[in-house]
Amino acid sequence: MTPPSLRLFRTRAGLPALMAFCLALCSLPAFASSYWLDVLCRIGIATIGAMGLNILTGSTGQISLGNAAFLAVGAYATAALAGRFELPFVVVIPLSGAIAAVTGMLFGIPSLRLRGLYLAMATLAAHFIVIFIAVHWESVTGGVNGLAVPAPSLFGIELDDDRRLFLLILPLAVLLLLFARNLARTRPGRAFIAIRDQDIAAEVIGIDVFRYKLISFAVSSFYVGVAGSLLAYQARLISPENFPITLAIDYLAMIIVGGLGSVLGSVLGATFITVLPEALRVGSGSLSGRYPAMVELFASLKMGVFGLTIILSLAFQPQGMAARWHSSKIWRKVPAS
């Protein structure tokens, strides 16, 4: 019997539950409105990105404020590869991830000397430098006007709306999540956590800390790059405005609210942070009949609720939604056993 921490799923019901859930999601495009399909696609993309950030920040303990920049790298790589070189998406998506991974490793080099806060600030600087390049390297990035991205196509079918695109994003997200979970229960994933918890002890037990930090940056940025690539395919037009520093903060919020280092936490956090403004939009929209001021207040409402969510979730469930989920399951088991 494999110990629980080394299983792919914590419980026996995990695999069937995941398959049922995916089937249910697959059937959604058949009847969801295009508005909610867009949201669904964005949840999928955010899940991949949050998973990537969670490998670096949650598991390896390297705080990064640069993930919006890595998203941008993935997105611009896709725009160039798919637009200029007309490559098919099966090549473009992994290649965009790889380009982001290389960029991530470059940004990871300072982690040899910098830790904690200083690394966070270095990655913050990296964000502004990447965006500066995106604005000014016009021949490649299109400057402030941005670049158009062609729709991905499969066997001659253009995945040109969210309905079809979702059927590309969903399996990709599931595969990447399974990969991340496998990583967490094998040698490289344990090395990441060891570095986060006790870097000197990790080095002494035989882990090449710098090498594994770079690996973590690379894997993490690969995920974020793939998310950026999908983001480009969904938006079809990308410009520096798509990648503000607040996007990096959104992603950090996802993994904090969802659960640091947790696969399930990445999914829950990405879903929550993506749906939150939509729920507010729906809520304030329905109230606008009685209170017309609600529409004007929407932007500040969104910001305020976002901020409060972070503060309250850190105060009341600092381990994140995933831990709450697992502990509530145990609760249900106790009376039965």
């Binding site: 110990p3 921490s5 080394l6 344990r190 956590i193 918890d197 002890a201």
Partner: peptide, 11 residues
């Protein structure tokens, strides 16, 4: 103690 506190004994 230089243990990895976020891991199980086994890990």
């Amino acid at each position: 103690l230089g243990l990895f506190k976020g891991m199980t004994v086994l890990e």
